[in-house]
Design a binder for these strands. Structure first.
Lengths: 258, 258
DNA sequence: GTCTGTGAAGGGCTTCACAGCT
DNA sequence: AGCTGTGAAGCCCTTCACAGAC
């Protein structure tokens, strides 16, 4: 039986059968953070930074510096002692480790409110993903153009995935259609699926799935607030003001520039 | 200094100063899964199920049965040995534990593509959240109506949050505005923020934040695929077919019905 | 002196196996 | 007989502290 949910709290003990790639030994938790570091490094690079220390990068990423160094150490030696990390070099190293240097091609199924938002979101290209196909079942939607792509009928999905050489499928359909679409994506040979349906979809072991469930995020938020707010309900507006004054930590500090 | 990122891999060791609530002792990982169980229980209830066993609920949620029982045990005794769990009762118990029985009121800032999708998403009401305010900076957008709510100018944000008695703020603005909006939400007294900006926003300790970063989800997906696909690239379409035949596990099984 | 890389200690979560109730 | 609740073992991850390179 296939496990369906990976979601936000993955505990996949599953390992590939062969031990070829170095990837194998990177902890799941570290992988998630590597993606964060990559994003922050992008901001630093845009600002013209050349070298960054573990402390600075850690602060900007919201983690401790020791944890950051440990995380990076899984990729091998990346920095220079007494100096710091070369921004461009580290960035390339992480991209390579995450497999982003091959350029993923994304197909999106379900062009409702959310699908339209995803199709129009420009942030993907900047981070190594290109949207290559849009699909929907509604004839009123098929044929329309979003972000330079024409929406196709979902019946063409499997064939198109192969033609487009897609590597990632995104499911943004209503819940009732999610499993069916998922099966088609899997049948077409995709091994990466990102689902916005709250349902736990059935997938074979060789397919990787992540789920984004917005209502669930809010529920966890709700609990954590309750946990941090014992009945003695302290109003403390000046803590907010103090923190607000700090500003984005990527903008100050002693980052080396050209 | 405040840590900004909680995100998908939270490790917040932070604890409330007083130890009043029972909440305190529930592991973070368990909280995340409780939200999943709650969703599955909702589906079961809709189907008319009265009693469910740990094994069935676990399968439908994508976790092991032992883990599920352990998770539920943090809420105290909830089932009947030799029988199973009362669906309605367990559902109410989890809702109460997550603090969802008080009805959260949500304000959304940033009515772009994503914001519009969120505003129009019907799934929130069904799960105990009601959208009570929409805000944007663009005069062309302010005044329009989405899902029965009129978009207000973001300058009214702080005052409106208080008037509307909002408890959760959602940030769906462009990155450049995110920190500013965040500060305003915090200043208005909100203690729960859900951000769709990839930036690590600065918040004071008493505020709980979760971040949803779509590009990051895809990056993690990309890596996990690479990890599970050693160079010997095995095509295995029949695994897909086998799994597809299983169907949603909430639909079969020996769930007790009226 | 500064900052990275890392063994070792510690904590939290998962898994196992079974005691206990119906 | 069946299923829940739970101590205990084991594992993974985080944190600490320092050796090592510059």
């Amino acid at each position: 039986m296939a496990r369906g949910v990976t979601g936000a709290a993955p505990s996949a003990p599953r390992r590939g059968p062969s031990a070829a790639a170095q990837h194998r030994d990177i902890p799941q938790a570290t992988v998630t953070r590597l993606a964060t570091y990559l994003r922050v490094l992008g901001v630093l690079a845009d600002e013209g930074a050349l070298i960054v220390s573990s402390e600075e990068l850690a602060n900007a990423s919201g983690v401790g510096s020791a944890k950051l160094r440990k995380d990076l150490s899984f990729l091998g030696p990346n920095g220079v002692r007494g100096v710091g990390y070369d921004v461009a070099r580290l960035r390339a190293r992480i991209e390579s480790a995450l497999g982003l240097d091959r350029g993923h091609r994304v197909v999106l199924v379900g062009i409702g409110n959310l699908g339209r938002a995803l199709a129009g979101y420009g942030g993907f290209d900047r981070r190594g993903f290109s949207m290559v196909g849009l699909f929907d079942r509604d004839p009123a939607c098929v044929g329309s153009t979003i972000g330079g792509l024409t929406v196709r009928d979902v019946t063409e999905l499997a064939d198109s995935c192969r033609d487009l050489e897609a590597t990632i499928g995104v499911i943004a359909t209503p819940d009732a259609a999610a499993q069916d679409v998922c099966d088609q994506l899997v049948g077409a040979g995709l091994r990466c699926i990102l689902s916005f349906s709250p349902l736990a979809l059935e997938i074979p072991d060789h397919v990787e799935m992540r789920r984004v469930d917005l209502a669930m995020e809010m529920q966890v938020l709700s609990f954590n607030m309750a946990r941090n707010t014992p009945p003695d309900e302290q109003r403390n507006p000046q803590a907010a003001a103090a923190s607000a004054a700090v500003g984005a930590s990527t903008r100050n500090g002693s980052v080396i520039r050209p």
